[in-house]
Simulated assay, not measured.
Amino acid sequence: MSDVPASPLRHRPFVLMLSAAVGAFAGFALLLPVVPLWTVRQGAGSVIAGASTGVFMASTVLAQFAVPAFVRAFGYRAGLVLGALLIGVPTPLLAVFPSAGAILATSFVRGLGFGLLTVCASALIAELLPSESVARGSGLYGLAVGVPQLVGLPAGTAIAENWGFVPVFVLATVLPLVAILPIAGLPRSRPRDTARGGLRGAVDVAAATWRPWLPMLAVSTGYGALATFLPIVLSPSVAAAALLVVPGAAMFTRWLAGHYGDRVAAPGRMLLPALAVGGAGLLGFALVSETDGLAAVAVVAVALFGVGFGVVQNDALVAMFARAPAAQASVAWNVAFDAGQGLGAVALGALISGTTVATGFTLLAVAALAVLPVAWQAGRTTPRNG
């Protein structure tokens, strides 16, 4: 029994970080499908709806590249506080200034906050926990960010449809600000390891992490497309069910992957089957997305995607931690996650405007399945950092 690592939940700073993540990600999840819907209701088309997510994710990625330097100077706690403020405080402007340009500008500012939050929180998994607990810690972090998405994605849409958009905007303002309370209890920690394994600069980090990075990009692209356009292409009841199923499946399988990963101690080994499952789910949804009477099959297809998405999330992050310092690995993983979401939203919006929903999702599925050889290599290459 002495060989079994202590549960990450026995580590108070880690628990505080998880608590903060719940509130901050709730503010993100509530608005992810609602802002595109709000944009359409203001008279804009599918391209602008997709761009609202794309701009958010683009600014997220820009901020993420600056986070390692920021946390070296000011620490992780300051990054989390600033991130919560930026994602919460500008939200009411969506209702006050509903023009397309103002919505995109507000999304840009909120994305900067999300970039700070995502990198700081996921880096703290490796900074706060011993290496033998990182996979389980990542799985628990998946629960902390998955529960808000499980509830927030369908709830945001349902509240907007039944009670209006303003209540959603209020909730998405308050919840990230409440997250500052547990953040205040975190230590003033800075990166404890910025040059492990001789890695220097973005080029070296990219060279070390690109194999797990590409599968992560592939599934997050599919997720961004689903989260943005399910409320637009499906009926409200079916969309709500699908938006509940995708993050639910992803959250559960990410948690399972964390428990399994700490036992097999082989980062990256689950990427190949998980990516295959996720790609199959996207393809299945593409085949039924425009067929009446197959709503249940569509929900099953996106659930299958969620299963693969959750496992890829966990295994890709652990594989990157094994190859690069925590802050840089967190940047790489989060850039794949968030750039993929933005790419999926923008690309599918453009494809739908010129072709069909089925064609758009088919192309996303093919792109994901094309990365399978890289996922296979990621599970069999020796980590430079381990």
Rank of each mutant, 00 (worst) to 15 (best):
G224S: 07
V134E: 14
V246T: 12
G101W: 12
R77E: 07
A100Y: 04
A227N: 13
M251C: 10
V147H: 08
I125V: 14
R196C: 05
R12S: 14
G43L: 00
V96M: 11
P373Q: 10
L93E: 04
G139Q: 03
V4D: 02
V219F: 14
G139T: 04
L372N: 09
Y223T: 09
L348W: 03
L116F: 13
P33F: 00
A69C: 07
V300L: 15
A316Q: 12
F337G: 15
F65K: 05
V246L: 14
L80Q: 10
A368W: 01
M320E: 11
G279V: 01
P90D: 10
A144N: 14
T173G: 02
A301Q: 14
W376K: 13
F25Y: 09
L117P: 12
A123P: 04
A301L: 08
P212A: 11
D315M: 08
A327H: 09
I159Q: 11
G386W: 05
L177H: 07
D292W: 09
N334C: 05
I103R: 02
S133D: 00
T118N: 14
P8G: 01
Q42I: 04
V366E: 03
V312K: 01
F361H: 06
L282C: 06
L186F: 03
A26V: 07
L343R: 09
A184C: 09
G342H: 02
G23H: 09
W38S: 06
V151Y: 13
A316S: 15
T39M: 12
I159S: 13
P273L: 09
P231K: 02
L199E: 15
S99Q: 07
V335Q: 15
L363E: 10
A240F: 06
G293L: 02
A29I: 06
G310Q: 02
S19I: 05
A322F: 09
G45F: 04
G278I: 08
L128Y: 02
L317S: 11
R254K: 04
L230I: 06
G137E: 04
F165R: 00
V318F: 00
A336K: 05
V81Q: 00
A66S: 15
A63N: 13
V67W: 02
S330I: 03
P154G: 06
R254P: 01
G360Y: 06
D262M: 00
S133F: 00
A206R: 09
V151M: 14
G222H: 05
G261W: 01
S122R: 06
L294S: 13
G354P: 06
A158W: 11
T209I: 06
G185W: 00
A327R: 11
Q377I: 04
Q328D: 15
T362G: 14
A44E: 11
L217H: 12
V311M: 08
A378R: 03
V89R: 07
A218G: 08
V307A: 08
V335C: 12
P267Y: 04
S220E: 10
L104D: 14
L30K: 01
G386D: 11
